[in-house]
Design a protein around this nucleic acid. Structure first.
Lengths: 235, 235
DNA sequence: ATAATCCTTAAATTTACCTTAAATTTTTAT
DNA sequence: ATAAAAATTTAAGGTAAATTTAAGGATTAT
């Protein structure tokens, strides 16, 4: 094993997901021995999604075979609100094909049977990379941001809803991008105006509301009951 | 090319590194035309490291092929004293493999031959991201306060009971937070009013009771026999 | 230069929230 | 036990914020 500085890694939150408890415990034991002291475990898909909402892990080791919803679906749902890197565990060759077909961006996979050491090595390799090159978490994933049925392709500057191209104006696009970079976060109007319009903007904050209105009309299923861009009363 | 607010970007220091002067000049011309007015150039690895120590650039465009030490080595040495983001330029497929092996995603390298516009686009995308991305979200410690089956997520401003999201108004939330910070303590109405409403509040203290009522309705299992927010009779 | 598109402002409307008031219950004091 | 005081509960009015629509002015493209 390559010598690695664990001072940064050891506190990273790692979520282990497998339906077999033996495997979970084995992995946990080995990872703890390797220095990771922030390990969480779940045994089903729904549990995993809930856990992610709660703890926001830095990395997930995800078995594709789960009792309720499979790993692919878990991944898809997670991507709606976070870009956590995933290392997939799979037993079947079919799964590997499917993973490759999906173009797993910054993600990785390991086929069963695997050695726990191998998993530890991959995890360390992942953190080492992003530390060493200081790549922000965003760089690790594809340059396509998804939430629900909306996807933003940054390379092309395109936004699609249910795969349909949605034409956005410049301000709408900038605003959407800013919001998409800060998912599940509380942003004040001034905060948004400052970043998207610039700190020298002297206009009314209703300007922002009108643009949000336009985005909701174009991207929400029910613009008056928004699910993506959620209002919060003052501040 | 997507238009971008250049007010913030234009003063960013960009260091261009390539051994071919033609390419350097071409890049410089295009970037200046795009609005960047703080561009530096070097043609060798050692020169690059010295320049970084001197000017601390905001971003480096780094050709991997250099006459003295290659781009990978330059990156490694730079990382010893700074975390400046790097966009790699590479001509050979071998380099790309190596970059990918090091975990450098598509965002962070460009293969030759490239269009100068592409480079400008990547640079702008990078700055926009770092500008838009709120660093607060990276703070690991999630602040979650729990009592019984109620949990308060201070980061998201959300309150859950039995994992179910409970919508609270601003005053309700502020009040709950104040109470949660002072568990098992006896608080007088005036004390609470002063802290939550502010010392300039001129209203009736019944206002407070109404809000407490609402909280109990939303969070207590039996609102009229409260377990969490317990009344105490005389002063 | 003209047309088309987009951004901003303004004004009307709706919604959500806070406070007050008044009725009811519980506790304390006599 | 009874009255007074304090606390609880319910409902409703007023207010501030958010939403929505429309239109004028600025920018960009043709």
């Amino acid at each position: 094993m390559v010598n690695v500085d664990m001072t940064i890694m050891k506190n990273k939150k790692i979520l282990l997901v497998d339906d077999e408890l033996d495997i979970l415990n084995l992995l946990e034991t080995v990872l703890k021995k390797e220095g990771f002291n922030n390990i969480y475990k779940t045994t089903s898909g729904h549990e995993t999604i809930k856990m992610c909402e709660k703890i926001a892990p830095d990395l997930i080791v995800l078995d594709i075979m789960l009792p309720d919803i499979d790993g692919f679906e878990v991944c898809r749902r997670l991507r709606e609100f976070c870009l956590v890197p995933i290392i997939f565990l799979s037993a079947k060759d079919d799964d590997v094909d499917k993973l490759l077909g999906l173009g797993i961006g910054g993600d990785d996979y390991i086929t069963k049977p695997f050695s726990p050491k191998e998993v530890a090595f991959r995890i360390k390799a992942h953190f080492r990379r992003s530390e060493y090159f200081n790549l922000k978490s965003l760089s690790d994933s594809k340059r396509i941001i998804r939430f629900g049925d909306v996807e933003i392709d940054e390379d092309k500057g395109e936004v699609r809803k249910k795969s349909e191209l949605v034409p956005l104006t410049l301000k709408e696009y900038s605003l959407l991008l800013y919001l998409a970079y800060n998912p599940n976060k509380i942003l004040s109007k001034n905060q948004i105006l400052e970043k998207v319009w610039g700190s020298d903007f002297e206009g009314y904050d209703n300007t922002l509301m009108v643009h949000i209105r336009h985005l909701r009309q174009k991207l929400e299923n029910d613009p008056s009951n928004p699910k993506y861009i959620i209002p919060l009363y003052p501040e």
